[in-house]
Design a protein around this nucleic acid. Structure first.
Length: 289
DNA sequence: CCACAGGTGTGTC
DNA sequence: GACACACCTGTG
């Protein structure tokens, strides 16, 4: 793990990328660097003198895996330029200016976002970690951390839901995870086919999976299938859009439509700025008496 | 001990 | 299609 790659990129802030709620398999180490496991590989990342340093990879591996994973083929400066024409959004961009949308593995994204439904980030991370430790493959000890891969659809399709609930603390989502894994492992649902579909068709296909509702489907479209116009609406986005743009309560579907209408082809990126900004500032949350 | 947070599935109108 | 309600677990 001596080899490393460095990249000059202004729009890259580790805290923004990893804590904006799109990924659950990273760990902040005591020296401030981040350990990330994805695509069966382990990567340690930090910034030094304005450069991003990727440890545990080489140039060939970086170009093959991580360049796309961190969305380096996408020009965030141009996106910010475009979205920043919106006066309100400009504040949120300023706050989360280091955010990048990761291109994550579709199956892993599906399962982690099924777990995310009706839950919150610390609990999601803990469930995912336990599931990987128990059902994934041991990749080795890197920088003092035991690392495991995310299990395959085949593996999770065969587990006993009760055991999964016990080990992963996933509650009633246990059977959704197993059933969805079965549908994918059996080929009943083909992720490679979904990857080629346009957004609305792909969304319909994802909604067939148990545990995948509208919000989770939109997250999967944005974080695994590259649909940057997907606009997931959770409680935070609902509050932020109501407070900053609409001025009155509207349904989730209307929020998604309004979001895509205002922000266009990069609505999903705008969504992440707004989510991060809104949640960190507890925007629109009822004040407890 | 109890209150609360948080999407999806199911059932009813 | 709009709504009410149950579902699990960590945290305060």
């Amino acid at each position: 793990m001596n080899s490393y790659v460095t990249v000059q990129e202004k729009i890259f802030r580790l805290k923004d990328i990893f804590t904006c709620g799109q990924a659950f398999r990273w760990k902040r180490l005591s020296d401030g660097s981040y350990l990330n496991i994805a695509h069966g590989r382990v990567l340690r990342i930090f910034k030094k003198d304005g450069e991003v340093v990727f440890c545990g990879t080489n140039q060939r591996d970086f170009e093959h895996i991580w360049q796309d994973y961190f969305d380096f083929n996408c020009n965030y400066e141009a996106i910010q330029q475009e979205l920043g024409k919106d006066e309100i959004l400009r504040l949120a961009i300023e706050y989360g200016r280091g955010i990048r949308i990761l291109n994550q593995d579709p199956y892993e994204t599906i399962i982690t976002f099924i777990i995310s439904a009706n839950s919150h980030i610390p609990r999601i991370m803990s469930s995912v970690e336990k599931i990987c430790e128990h059902y994934g493959t041991f990749l080795g000890n890197y920088w003092g951390q035991d690392c495991y891969s995310f299990p395959s659809p085949h593996r999770l399709s065969q587990v006993d839901p009760a055991q999964l609930r016990e080990i992963g603390k996933v509650g009633y989502r246990d059977r959704y995870i197993v059933q969805t894994s079965q549908m994918i492992a059996s080929g009943e649902v083909c992720l490679e086919t979904i990857a080629k579909m346009e957004r609305r068709e792909a969304r319909k296909a994802l909604l067939q999976l148990p545990g995948v509702g509208e919000k989770v489907a939109d997250c999967i479209l944005l974080f695994a299938f590259r649909h940057k116009d997907s606009f997931p609406v959770d409680v935070w986005i609902g509050r932020v859009m109501e407070k900053l743009y609409v001025g009155k309560p509207i349904s989730r579907r209307e929020v998604a439509d309004v979001g895509r209408k205002i922000f266009g082809e990069y609505a999903g990126v705008a969504n992440q700025y707004l989510f991060y900004y809104g949640r960190e500032h507890q925007l629109g949350r009822e004040v407890k008496k």
